[in-house]
Design a binder for these strands. Sequence first.
DNA 1: CAACTACTTGCGCGTTTGCGCAAGTAGTGA
DNA 2: TCACTACTTGCGCAAACGCGCAAGTAGTTG
Lengths: 99, 99
Amino acid sequence: MDRPDVGSSDAERQRFAAVGRALADPKRLCVLETLAAGERSVSELSREVGCHVPNMSQHLSVLRSAGLVAARRDGNTVFYRLADQRVLEAYRLIQTLAR
Amino acid sequence: MDRPDVGSSDAERQRFAAVGRALADPKRLCVLETLAAGERSVSELSREVGCHVPNMSQHLSVLRSAGLVAARRDGNTVFYRLADQRVLEAYRLIQTLAR
DNA sequence: CAACTACTTGCGCGTTTGCGCAAGTAGTGA
DNA sequence: TCACTACTTGCGCAAACGCGCAAGTAGTTG
């Protein structure tokens, strides 16, 4: 049977945990759900998620440094998108685990 | 194309975030890796992960209330195991996202 | 340049988290 | 019942987190 490796070093586990932390907040999960439909600006995201722009910027910074989202600047607005489709796969798996 | 549902209510997202939080600590990830090889007692886990028994008990409590691990008592020792194989799948996905 | 929009960053504060330690509970065996 | 092992729980503290708010940066427009 397939038995993909799961063991890791302390340093690696630290980075995996950073991904976990990024997934540990409802608003950030809401951001991922929104980005599943396509890229959004910071102000659009803050409106759809329901928080102030600086707060959204902080959440996006957490998601970005965990490598879950990527940013693109166009003029003076910044668009965020999912960094990888596997982000959604991971989130869906977590959803089934929690249900 | 397949477009599995990703949208959730606030209450649901709260529980998904609890799973995220459970995955947000290196020691807890280490526990999952250890349990991938089979069930372990609390003292075995604390030895392999490298922390004190009460601390391990607290981590296990977080994992258990997130539904990621399950417990079984035999005599006066408690054995923990992964609640579901999909826990490993989710962890592996997170590993690939972080690498 | 000034003024405006869009976003990011720094700061302070209340809450949560991870930890060690001490005390409590549960089960075994003499 | 008493002692022992195995685990859980409560408490206090330092560190990290989420948040609002004010200030700063970046880019556009006149």
